[in-house]
Each structure stands twice: as C-alpha cells, then as structure tokens.
Nucleic acid binder design. Structure first.
Length: 815
RNA sequence: GGUCGAGUGGUGGAACUGGCAGACACGUGGGACUCAAAAUCCCAUGCUAGCAAUAGCGUGAGGGUUCAAUUCCCUCCUCGACCACCA
C-alpha cells in the first residue's frame, strides 16, 4: 500500500492537538525538563526554513525527553512588537494589532503542520496587554530601585526609521534594521543601569553550562578591565590632566598626551581660561571639525591611516621621568572611553606609533620581545604590544609585563599620582524608542513632582488604538500626538501631568517571556512561586548565535534583578545554551526574498512530507553548523522515508517471536548510539543510524526479526519523524500514541559475543583480521595469528619483536 | 587588532577515552526493469600504478611523543563567526 503522507499528517495532527500528549503538567511528580527555543517575530511572510530548522531541533529533543519519562515543558509564543509590523501597518493603513493577529495565526498553523509538539495552552504574546502589564511592572521596579533614569544624551538616530538606536543596534555606523547611515542627536531617553550588574553577569556564568563560545561572547561584551587613572600636572600652570590606561607598565615610554576633542580641558583652552602660546584659531578649527565628524568617520578603522591632530601648546609632566609630554588633541580618542584622555606610548601601541611618526614625536622602546631586539623603533612591525620584558623603565627593568603592571600600579597609588578603577566595555542600556508599536513606558511627568511611575493597580497602560501612528520628524513618539491619552493626573499630587510617550525596545518583551510560559494566565504575578520553583531554570535554551550576546545578556540581567527583588526563586534563568546553525540558500548565500534563493518549509513539506523534511533538516550537518540547502539530499531523505514505510508494510506481518543474535546486537547498538546522539544534540548522526539500521534489516532474513525490533525502531524514529511513526505504530496495532511510549532501553548483553573479529596490524599497518574468543589473552592471540594463513605468510622469516594486543580491539605485531 | 572555532574523498559530513580513516548521504560511472522515459532496484566509487592479486600514498604544512595519531605536544599556513579607534 502506498503511503499517503498528506492524509496521514492531517489525521494525526488533529488527534495530537485534541489530546494532552504534549501538555506539560504543573507540579508533577516526574522530574521536569524545560526545553526552550527562542520565540519568533511573526513576520508577514510566514515561517521560513531557519525557523523550521531551529524548532525541529528543539522539538526532537522535547519528544525524546518526554519518552524518557520527563515532564517536559516545550512552549511557544510571539515576540510580536516591532518595526516591520508597524511599517507594514502604516503602509496598508491597518492596525498593527490586526496584522499581528493574522501573522500569529499563520505561524501557529504552520507550526502545527510541521508537527512541533508545543504545549499551546501556554502560548504568550508580548503585545497582549495582559502580558505587557508585567513588562511594564518590571520597568517600574527598575525605576523604583534607581536602575532606570532619564537623561539627555547623544544617541544614534536613524533618519529612515526615525528612531533612536542603542549602540548595539548600530552596525558599522549603520542602522541594524534598514542599513541607513545613522546620525547623532540629543534626545532625553530612559536609560537602564545594566552596568550595575556587570560583575554579576560575569560571575553568574559559573552556574551555567553554556557552551564556551557563548560564555566568551558574554564576557567579551562586558569586558571588565582594571585601569588606572593617572593625573599629570600641566607644566607652568595650576592645571592637570587625568589619563586612563590599562598599561601603566609602559609609562616610562610615554612621550605625549592626547585628548578627545570633547575633553573639558579643550573647552577651557578654547575659552581662554587656560593660556597657550599656540594659535587658538587653529586649535578651534580642528576641534570644531572633529566634533562634527559623523560617527561613521570616527569609528572607521583607524590604524594604517594618516592621523590628524593639533598641538595645544601645553605639556604634561611624566612623574616617572620628569619628561615634558606635549598635549595634543586628536579625534581618535573617544570622550566616552576612559577619561577621554590617553597617554601616548608610541613604542608599544600602533596608533600611538603612527601618531608619533606623523607629528615627529619621540619614540622609546620599553618592552623587548622574544627576538631580543633593543634597537630604536623605526617601523610598525617593531612595535611590541603585549609580550616581553621591560627595559629603559627604571625599577621595572627585567620584569614581565604582567608583574610590571601590578608593581607600577601599586607604586603610582602609593605616591598619590593616580588611582585604580574598574571599567567595562558594557554601557548602560538606552531603553526608549520613539515608536508606536511597543510597550508604553508606564511613567508620568508632573511639573511639580518630576517623573513618577503609574500606580501598579493601573497597569497595564494600554496602547491607545489610533488612526495615525506614523513616526514624527521631531523625534517624538507618535503617541505624543494623542492629547487625550497623554494628559493625565500626577500619581503623587493629583495635579496635571503628562504620560511618557516613548515605548520600550524590542528586548523588553523577550527578556522574561520564558517565565510567563509557566503561568500565562496569572493576573496576580508574572508567575506563581510554586510553578517557578518547579519549572525553573530553563534546562536547555536553543537559539541563534546572533542572540548570544545581547538577548542573553539583557534577559539574564533582568532575571538577576528580579531575583534581587524576590520575584523569582533562583539567580540564573538558563542552565544550558545550545546554538543552532544557519541554512543558506543553494547558492551559498543567506536565503532572502530579494535574492530569490529562498525555500519555504511549506513547499518542501508539500513535496516530500513533513517527516522527510524534518529528517533532512536534522541530517544535512551538525546542529550548530552552517549548511547549504541541497535539493538532491532532500530527495535522498525522501527515498529513505519511502523505503522505510515499504519495509514495514511488507515485512511486519512476517515478523517472528524472537530475533537472531545479530539482529539484536544491531538493534541495541542503534539504541545506544541514537540515545547518545539525542543527549548531545548530534542529530545528523542519528538519522545516519536510522539508515544503517534499515539497510541492515533489509538484508536480514525476516524470520530472524521479532516484532519487538519493529516497535523499538519506530520509537527511535518518532522524535524526528513523528507522523510516520504514529502511523506505523497504529498499523502495528498498538495504542495511541507512540509519542508517550517509554524510550527503548539499551541492553549491553546483546552486544556481547563469544568470538570477536579483530584487526591485525604489522608494524602499524593493517594486514588482516582474525577471530578470537572475547576473553583471549595475548598468548592465545599470538597463537591464532601465527596459525592464520595470510598473516603467517607476512610473518614468515620475520623476527617478531613484540606483539601489542589491546583486548577486544586490535593486535599489532612489531617485526 | 581581539575572542572563539574550523581545516578529512568530487560534495555535505562520520570516527568512543590514542586502536580498522572516510559511517551515512549526495554526486558520478555501469547494469536491471521499460517500446521509451520517469520512478525504483542492483553493483562500483579516497588517490596513484597494475588485467589482476597487490603495492605505495592519504585527515591544511612541517616536526615530535607512541607499538599505534584525524585524535596528544611544538612551529607555521589558511578559512569562518562574533566583536572592535576600548588606549
């Protein structure tokens, strides 16, 4: 009989979702397993292959763990706020709420088609007021704890999206969303003090089992370093200048000081407060030009380019050498890093070297590398940056860089010339967006009382439904145009007040969604303590590399904050983090509509069945790899699926009561390898093992194969090929459903045989194989080798020096 | 420049804790079935030499440890991902 996959899929999909086989039971006696995949942004174009790949990876794991007896929570929801929906809604003159509803309906239906075993009772949607009520609640708590403040600061402004962007959303000086070059604007924004948690975000990683690269990405992004701020007196004046450095060990080689154009001392020079003999006009010209440079120009790769700068006419005095170091102004020093002033050590920093060359400043070598070169530094290649031994450095001479750094820091502090400080690359988090389709920030401004949160009882502050929500050119949120919504009473004094019209960034809703899955209908709390105690932490979190830094960091920060509040029971939300890979189009480029190289999971499933598509996705490569879509390989998996069904269809009725030893050994080897494959996310090898087992069975005599083999095989298949497994399970006469059967148990005994075949090497080269009893000792094996005709031939006349026999594995004869 | 990772047939990729390199699949060649094609099935397929048995070579390059190295150590090369005027 032919396998009509479309009918089979339709039949079982209905059965599955009408039953409770995928339902996670709260506070069950079984051990829990919380399997989380990143929830998608429901775009109008539907589920793409990348989604199907990532979700299949989560689904097979969830199904596997359910069969192993765990109470599995595998939920799904929608990260639905965001610009594409807003832009689409504006263009089509429709409400984003409606558009979102349509898109999530489409996504949900596609997910059901693909057989994902999500527990739909727990669905969440970040745009649902009952959900964002708690997103707003979290913001109020941040404000109350002093972790959210409003400040005017230059932000990255995208002139196309008309939105302020966090530094993280600007890539190469361009808007991450639309690619337009960003500019700088001053806007008053809500800022969240994530830097307060910088150390804990590093330390907390110890309690997780994240893969190394994820931990590294987090630590790198936070980038905690010990600096020292050194204050130099300015010669012939009462002024001083404080520079910040992480490399004070090279201070004997310092020959100049450079200031950012925004530095306070620069302002005082320009205003005449600090006297200089240099031409003020010339200084001013440079500073004005530098300050007006776009972010892009200043951020561009700086080494290897001509440096620009201007001399202030002032000198800083190096405490160590009493050398007078000329103070320059240059645009490669950033006012936002350190103190906005840097000491130039041209012998040991490429930028400083280029700057010194450009303006004829002295260059001193203070670190000697392994080549022992102590000559004068004349070219870039001689600049020794981070390895070597100190010279020309007084009491530091002969020390390694690391020791010298500690020593000189102590010394500088002792002398009162400077002070250590810890700094991070991580910056505070700009939390305001000037858009409609986001969570309203639940704050009210009163002329008398300043900013206050709305009372918790008034949450959620709902987005008003309006006709026109296009962004404004003034930079204000479209909500600012809705006077009746903006006007409100001050929660403190009851007087006239105005609502905050900015909305939250996309990250806000996705920071805590995995908590809401636990208790998505709770109107008293984000989730009940009881449920959080049972389900948290997330055991496995599957997501893309692109979220390993920001999303993971932001959500861990919010969770740690909630822990401090007592709102969640443990300090870290995720135990294990698994990266899923990427699937490129068959032309080796990212799939996209404009390139026309896209394939949708729907069309592939239509062609080869959902099961074959799923097996293909798991088979094409390692789960975290970068794979190229290959239609031929897809058809290969389809052939396997057809062959599989046909094999069961024609052979199950002939199955016997017991299996031969070989069949049992093969089955149990497969059970072992498939189980280990699921445990370690090596899905590609699992599909290969399925194929091997089928290849083996097809060649075996059906009277040697018991019914047990068939049913165990179906169980092994079921996580990856849920529809066909269910169908076969049913055909074999078993009760619904294969998906809540218990996982086959590997039994080592089946692998044990009396005689085993081992390879025999002569001088490390494979020359033959012999059969030996499994418990044979070296002497016996030697006898057997010498008795073997072909091997004996190789050995005739040879002088056997030694035989190495590794029991049950290999023999190696040294002649 | 920093951090992390990877180099294995024509291709995607397997290989436990150092123990038969190339599982599984794609592709290719040949064959069966067919009036023919598609589909399906069977055989072969790392490279070189040879009719063959067989021999030599072979996991980015070079060296080392070992009876034995894709796996461990040293030196170097190449590629990828993420981050980056961070001082």
């Amino acid at each position: 009989m032919d396998y009509n996959f479309k009918e089979v899929e339709k039949k079982w999909r209905g059965r599955w979702f009408a039953s409770d086989i995928y339902t996670a039971k709260d506070n069950d006696k079984r051990e829990k397993k919380y399997v989380l995949v990143e929830f998608p942004y429901p775009s109008g174009s539907g589920l793409h292959v990348g989604h199907a790949f990532a979700f299949t990876g989560g689904d097979v794991y969830a199904r596997f763990q359910r069969m192993r007896g765990y109470n599995v929570l595998f939920p799904m929801g929608w990260d639905a706020f965001g610009l594409p929906t807003e832009n689409y809604a504006i263009k089509k003159k429709r409400k984003p709420q409606e558009v979102t509803k349509e898109n999530t309906d489409m996504f949900r239906s596609q997910m059901k088609d693909l057989g994902f075993s999500f527990d739909w009772d727990r669905e969440v949607n970040t745009t649902d007021p009952e959900y964002y009520k708690w997103t707003q609640w979290i913001f109020i708590k941040l404000f109350e704890k002093g972790l959210a403040y409003k400040e005017e600061r230059p932000i990255n402004w995208c002139p196309s999206c008309k939105i302020g962007l966090a530094n993280e959303e600007v890539v190469d000086g361009k808007c991450e969303r639309c690619g337009t070059q960003t500019e700088k604007r001053n806007i008053t924004q809500w800022i969240v003090k994530i830097t307060e948690y910088a150390d804990r975000l590093i330390d907390g990683l110890k309690d997780t089992a994240f893969i190394e690269k994820v931990k590294a990405a987090q630590i790198n992004w936070i980038d905690r370093k010990e600096w020292i701020d050194i204050t130099y007196p300015v010669a012939d004046s009462q002024e001083s200048v404080t520079i910040a450095t992480t490399r004070p060990d090279t201070n004997y080689g310092a020959t100049f000081v450079v200031l950012a154009p925004e530095h306070a001392l620069v302002n005082r020079i320009l205003s005449g407060e600090v006297k200089t003999d240099e031409d003020l006009g010339k200084i001013k010209e440079y500073v004005v030009k530098a300050r007006n440079k776009s972010e892009l120009e200043r951020q561009k790769e700086v080494t290897g380019r001509d440096k620009s700068g201007v001399f202030t006419g002032l000198y800083a005095v190096n405490h160590l050498t009493q050398a007078k170091m000329p103070i320059w102004i240059t645009d490669f020093v950033l006012s936002t890093v350190g103190t906005g002033a840097v000491v130039g050590v041209p012998g040991h920093d490429i930028r400083d070297f280029e700057f010194a060359k450009q303006f004829g400043l002295p260059i001193i070598r203070v670190v000697v590398g392994s080549d022992g070169d102590k000559s004068e530094i004349v070219n870039k290649e001689q600049v020794q940056e981070d390895e070597g031994v100190m010279i020309n450095s007084g009491f530091l001479d002969g020390m390694e860089i690391k020791d010298a750094t500690t020593k000189i820091m102590d010394y500088i502090e002792e002398k009162g010339w400077g002070k250590r400080s810890v700094r991070y690359h991580l910056r505070d988090w700009i939390f305001s967006r000037q858009h409609y389709w986001g969570e309203p920030i639940p704050m009210v401004h009163c002329e008398k009382c300043g900013w206050n949160p709305v009372p918790e009882s008034e949450l959620p502050i709902k987005l008003p439904e309006v006709e026109n929500y296009e962004p404004t050119d003034t930079g204000e949120s479209p909500l600012a145009n809705i006077e009746e919504w903006v006007k409100t009473k001050c929660p403190k004094c009851g007087g006239e007040a105005r609502r905050e019209t900015d909305t939250m960034p996309n990250w806000a809703g996705s920071d805590w969604y995995y908590v809401r899955y636990l208790d998505n209908k709770n109107d008293k709390a984000m989730a009940s303590t009881e449920k959080m105690n049972y389900w948290l932490p997330v055991d496995v979190y599957i997501g893309g590399d692109e979220h390993n830094t920001l999303h993971l960091l932001y959500s861990r920060f919010i969770f740690q904050f909630l822990y401090d509040l007592g709102a969640v029971p443990i300090p870290e939300p995720y135990y294990q983090r698994i990266s899923h890979g990427v699937i490129l189009g068959s032309d080796n480029r990212r799939m996209s509509k404009s390139k026309g190289n896209g394939i949708t999971p729907d069309e592939a499933a239509e062609k080869v069945s959902v099961d074959a598509l799923r097996a293909y996705l798991m088979f094409i490569g390692p789960f975290d790899g970068t794979m190229v879509w290959n239609d031929n390989a897809l058809m290969g998996v389809k052939r396997f699926a057809d062959r599989l069904y046909k094999y069961f269809d024609t052979n199950y009725s002939k199955a016997g009561e017991t299996s031969s030893h070989e069949v049992n050994a093969m089955l149990h080897r497969t059970i072992k390898q498939v189980t280990e494959g699921f445990d370690s996310f090596q899905y590609n090898t699992i599909v290969a093992k399925y194929m091997e087992l089928l290849n083996f069975l097809e060649k075996a005599d059906s009277k040697d194969i018991s019914k047990q083999v068939f049913s165990d095989f179906v169980k092994l298949l079921s996580p990856i090929m849920p529809y066909m497994s269910e169908e076969l399970w049913n055909i074999m006469g078993y009760k619904f459903s294969v998906h809540n059967q218990s996982w086959p148990i590997f039994n080592e005994e089946y692998l044990v045989t009396e005689n085993i075949e081992i390879p025999v090497q002569i001088n490390g080269k494979l020359k033959g194989r012999i059969t030996v009893p499994n418990d044979a000792e070296e002497g016996a094996v030697r006898e057997l080798i010498l008795r073997d005709n072909t091997l004996a031939e190789y050995l005739s006349g040879a002088d056997i020096k030694k035989i190495v026999y590794v029991k049950g594995k290999i023999a190696n004869i040294i002649v």
